[in-house]
Simulated scan of single mutants.
Amino acid sequence: MNAVKIAYKPFGMLLGAGGGALAGAAFQRVWKATGHEEDAPEATDQDRAWREVLLAAALQGAIFAAVKAAVDRGGATTVHRLTGTWPS
């Protein structure tokens, strides 16, 4: 493993944490904008229907996956531009 890949690990972890926070905020905004209550339902929320729980989970998963991919790709691209090495 070369030095760029080793140095990228902590950078990637910070990007991941920031991306998670960004994805959570994006999901909350999308959930509210679609006319739902302020908080998305938990899987164990007895007062929520299966449909609503599964919709929230699917939407949250899609948003988290898209934000993670964008953050990871952006970080890798930035490292490649700065160092000339792709941090895979």
Rank of each mutant, 00 (worst) to 15 (best):
M1G: 15
N2G: 15
A3C: 09
V4C: 09
V4Q: 07
V4S: 06
V4H: 06
K5V: 07
K5Q: 15
K5W: 06
I6E: 13
I6W: 10
I6Y: 11
I6M: 14
I6P: 00
I6Q: 14
I6A: 15
A7I: 06
A7S: 10
A7H: 03
A7K: 09
A7C: 06
A7R: 09
Y8W: 15
Y8M: 09
Y8R: 03
Y8L: 02
Y8C: 05
K9S: 11
K9P: 03
K9T: 12
K9R: 15
K9C: 08
K9G: 07
K9I: 13
P10K: 07
P10S: 05
P10Y: 09
F11H: 09
F11I: 14
F11P: 01
F11G: 02
F11W: 10
F11A: 06
G12F: 07
G12P: 04
G12E: 10
G12A: 14
M13E: 12
M13Y: 13
M13R: 14
M13L: 13
L15H: 03
L15M: 13
L15P: 02
L15F: 09
L15N: 08
G16E: 05
G16Y: 05
G16H: 06
A17E: 10
G18V: 05
G19P: 01
G19D: 04
G19M: 01
G20H: 06
G20L: 06
G20M: 09
A21M: 11
A21I: 14
A21N: 04
L22K: 01
L22W: 02
L22H: 00
A23Y: 00
A23M: 04
G24F: 03
G24H: 00
G24K: 00
G24M: 01
A25E: 04
A25L: 11
A25P: 00
A25C: 06
A26R: 01
A26D: 01
A26P: 02
A26K: 03
A26T: 09
F27N: 01
F27M: 03
F27E: 00
Q28W: 07
Q28F: 06
Q28S: 15
Q28N: 14
R29Q: 15
V30Q: 04
V30C: 03
V30I: 11
V30L: 10
V30R: 04
W31M: 02
K32L: 09
K32F: 03
K32A: 08
K32V: 06
K32M: 10
K32N: 12
K32C: 07
K32R: 15
A33T: 07
A33I: 01
A33P: 02
A33G: 12
A33Q: 09
T34H: 10
T34R: 15
T34S: 13
T34Q: 14
G35P: 04
G35W: 05
G35E: 06
H36F: 12
H36G: 14
H36T: 05
